[in-house]
Design a protein around this nucleic acid. Structure first.
Length: 566
RNA sequence: CGGGGCGUAGCGUAGCCCGGCUAGCGCGCCUGGUUUGGGACCAGGAGGUCGCAGGUUCGAAUCCUGCCGCCCCGACCA
């Protein structure tokens, strides 16, 4: 395509509203424009990328026997009442004002609705139905450009099976398909086991990509592939060993000492000798949580152990409950249930607050002085700690959730009466799975993962064009003629070529645009090279440049593109 | 929904505290010319409800009130 005729509104400066790299670059390179918070228009170049992604998804879904549907975004509300999800979604669901319709945030109900009419026998299964369509969610806070929007493209598929074993096969098929999809998109991803939560069902995994723009925090081991949401992640953090001799408990005047670091500094001790106190309210009752040193309490783990609604105590409550303010609280004299992290289990000669402002207590022996304490893993894993599986160093970082696969079970089929008859003439609910991929997120992640200060670096598989052909000075006949010839040669050879044939743009301008737009290979036609009958090829990703005789262009292009993995 | 920031030409911004504006600058745009290997140069030109509404004032981009929108942090995220 000739760039002079394309709508690619590039921006030299960073738009005021964009912060994360993918958002900035999509706007600057003219791939998308925003229409409102969390609502984006895809411009021609951006839509080309979307189509590349959806085509990869489609191929891999077809390969596992998926059948594509086109489902309504406009849904009668009553269908969603059948599973009680109108209430479950609450304000996140868009409701129409002038008719009792909702805008579909996902499609379990619609799929189940159709399934109950037509899937009646065990002979009808397994089925995999999928769609690649716009979904609507009234997100309270859209953010990070296309990564969290109110309207977004999603590939959703739904499996229907007669047994748990069948569901497992469908689930595994999707897991493998997803790996292929993300690999083909050139993404470096990892799979995190997730608790299935409110979706119901027996298993689920998330496909994640590391990114500063991520909304989840995960712990990941490069060596063995261990990956877990930080809410549930564990590590082999060292435990505090017991000293041979336990000192007596003694009070220490510690004026203005609030934090663990200040306490260590004041007493010249290590933070592993300190028990940090955190007071939580669980179902109205105060509980004390003791952590080693600066370890942070993981509220998800805490909630799991306590089993109740848990919240941190307010500052006023602290004083009332313990007689001291935060920074001077400890287990000795605490009236209420006491929990402690495994790391300081049965430790002795520990320091903690005295429940009296400006005082701490030393020589605490948990076995002797806090015998009622219960121990569990309450800590938030930190980067660099040992992987619980292989002992290598864990990385803890933010990540974007690209895809999620669920074993739904019978939650929707039971609620909506989607039943089938098995070999024994017994009526049973269909066993379902649901599997989603955020299409725009794939695009954003690809950019997050592969870009530099000059712009986007597309993989071959997602790039809107294979080659960016730059005719530097199109007013010179020799440049124009050679460029036109190359354009034809490359196009005829089957490459998709973005041809910068603009007459008025300067050379620097074209280079900057090309780097910003991010096609994998640039072919530069300039007067200098033409004197020797040569043009320059440049790989966007590595910056590698090669001069080639025009007659050998196809060989050179092929060998350079072959250097790229995807 | 809580906290913070912002809203001035297509984009990026100055001016706002301390009212005097006929609103300045860079990029982009238009015309003519010179340029063409990393966002060129010269000359001329067009383009603004200063987010909206109300108020204070002789006078409001500037002060006050309300609203709207956008971004960030948090809460939320089936």
């Amino acid at each position: 395509m000739r760039q002079s005729k394309l709508f690619i509104p590039t921006l030299k400066e960073v738009p005021n509203d964009a912060v994360v790299a993918s958002h900035v670059l999509m706007l600057r390179a003219g791939y998308v424009r925003s229409l409102g918070a969390g609502i984006y228009s895809f411009l021609p170049l951006g839509y080309k990328v979307v189509k590349k992604i959806t085509e990869i998804i489609r191929e891999e879904m077809d390969a596992i026997g998926g059948q594509e549907f086109h489902l309504p975004a406009l849904n009668p509300r009553e269908i969603w009442e059948e599973t009680n999800r109108v209430e479950a979604f609450g304000d996140t669901m868009f409701h129409l004002k002038n008719r009792d319709y909702i805008l579909a945030p996902t499609h379990e109900e619609i799929i189940t609705y159709h399934a109950r009419k037509v899937v009646n026998s065990y002979k009808d299964m397994p089925q995999i139905w999928f769609q690649i369509q716009t979904k609507f969610r009234n997100e309270p806070r859209p953010r990070s450009g296309v990564i969290r929007g109110r309207q977004f493209l999603m590939k959703d598929s739904y499996s229907m099976d007669v047994s748990e074993e069948g569901l497992h096969l469908s689930y595994k098929a999707h897991e493998e398909a997803y790996k292929k999809i993300f690999n083909r998109c050139g993404l470096k991803f990892f799979v995190v086991g997730a608790s299935s939560g409110a979706m119901g069902g027996s298993g689920s995994e998330e496909f994640m990509v590391k990114s500063e723009a991520g909304e989840d925090t995960v712990a990941y081991c490069e060596d063995c592939g261990y990956a877990a949401n930080v809410e549930v992640a564990t590590s082999n953090a060292s435990r505090k060993l017991r000293d041979e001799v336990s000192k007596e408990v003694y009070e220490i005047h510690t004026p203005d000492v609030k934090s663990i670091d200040e306490l260590c500094e004041f007493l010249k001790i290590d933070e592993s000798e300190c028990a940090k106190s955190r007071v939580y309210i669980a179902s109205g009752n105060p509980v004390l949580i003791l952590m080693m040193g600066n370890d942070e309490v993981n509220e998800t783990k805490l909630q799991k152990v306590l089993g109740d609604e848990v919240r941190p105590a307010h500052p006023e409550e602290l004083k009332e409950i313990t007689g001291a303010d935060a920074g001077s609280i400890g287990p000795i004299g605490f009236k209420g249930k006491i929990y402690a992290d495994y790391r300081i289990m049965n430790a002795n000669n520990m320091y903690s607050g005295a429940n009296k402002n400006d005082y701490h207590i030393g020589g605490i022996d948990f076995m002797r002085d806090v015998p009622s304490a219960e121990y569990a893993d309450f800590r938030i894993v930190r980067s660099g700690e040992e992987c619980p599986k292989c002992g290598a160093a864990l990385g803890v970082f933010p990540a974007i959730e690209l895809g999620h696969i669920f074993k739904l079970g019978t939650r929707y089929s039971e609620a909506m009466g989607a039943m089938f008859t098995d070999e024994n003439s017994t009526e049973k609910p269909i066993i379902m799975g649901s599997y989603g991929i955020g299409v725009e997120r794939v695009m954003a992640c690809a950019i997050e993962q592969e870009h530099d200060e000059n712009g986007i670096v597309w993989s071959k598989s997602l790039a809107p064009f294979d080659i960016h052909l730059l005719g530097l000075n199109m007013k010179k006949d020799n440049v124009a003629i050679a460029s036109e010839r190359l354009y034809k040669m490359l196009t005829d050879a089957g490459y998709s070529v973005l041809y910068d044939d603009r007459i008025d743009a300067g050379a620097g301008f074209k280079f900057k645009d090309a780097d910003l737009l991010g096609m994998p290979l640039q072919v530069v036609v300039g007067e200098k090279g033409l004197k020797e009958g040569k043009v320059e090829l440049k790989l966007r990703k590595t910056g590698k440049r090669v001069d080639t005789q025009i007659d050998y262009i196809l060989e050179s292009v092929k060998s350079l593109l072959d250097e790229l993995p995807v």
